[in-house]
Simulated scan of single mutants.
Amino acid sequence: MSLENQVKTFKWISILEGISFLVLLLIAMPLKYIWNAPEMVRLVGAAHGFLFIAYIMGAVFLFKPLRWDLKTLLIICVSSVLPLGPFYVEKKYL
């Protein structure tokens, strides 16, 4: 896979991870705790967990090819736990 394709794939993972995190926080969690409907948390939580792992792995795999320094890698990884962080990474670093 070419570097260009790897970056494109990571962009998509970043966007999907950000969306899944927002859906988890803004839709699934209120459904669970306000309306006592935990099913959505299981579904969205599993998807978000998979995307979170793919995001971190993608960042690590792109670390050397994109010549990021450790500070940049740390910012990218920390951004994964901020609600809008993956969108910031996608715009600023990719």
Rank of each mutant, 00 (worst) to 15 (best):
V41I: 10
P65S: 13
V44L: 05
F87K: 02
V78N: 04
Y55F: 14
A28P: 02
S79H: 11
P38K: 06
I13P: 01
L70S: 14
A54F: 07
T9Y: 15
S20I: 05
P65E: 10
F21E: 05
F21P: 00
S14L: 03
F61I: 11
M29G: 00
A47F: 07
L74Q: 13
F50A: 11
V89L: 04
I19C: 01
M1Q: 11
G49C: 08
F10N: 06
D69H: 00
K71R: 14
K92Q: 07
M57F: 15
V7R: 06
V41D: 03
L25G: 08
I53T: 13
R67W: 06
V60Y: 09
P65C: 12
L24C: 10
Y55E: 07
E4W: 03
Y55C: 11
T72P: 03
P65R: 09
P83H: 03
I15G: 03
V78Y: 09
R67T: 12
E17S: 07
V89A: 01
P65I: 11
K64Y: 10
M29A: 06
V44G: 04
L31M: 13
V7K: 09
V78I: 14
S20K: 00
I76L: 11
V7C: 02
L73W: 06
G49R: 06
I27S: 11
F52Y: 15
F61A: 15
V78D: 04
A37T: 13
I53K: 08
S14Q: 02
E17K: 06
P86Q: 09
C77E: 12
L84Q: 09
F87G: 00
L43S: 10
Y55D: 04
L73Q: 02
W12N: 14
Q6N: 11
W68T: 05
I27W: 14
V60H: 07
S79I: 00
A28Y: 02
L16Q: 01
V89H: 02
L43I: 15
K11Y: 11
S80E: 03
K8F: 13
Y88H: 09
G85S: 06
S2R: 10
I13Q: 02
V41W: 02
G85I: 00
W35A: 09
P83W: 08
W68D: 05
R42Y: 14
P65Q: 09
V81H: 04
R67H: 15
E90K: 13
Y93H: 05
V60F: 09
I19D: 01
V89P: 04
L84M: 14
F63Y: 15
K92F: 02
V44I: 15
T72D: 05
L43M: 14
L31A: 02
F52K: 08
L51Y: 08
K92A: 03
P30C: 10
P86M: 05
N36A: 13
A59H: 01
L24M: 15
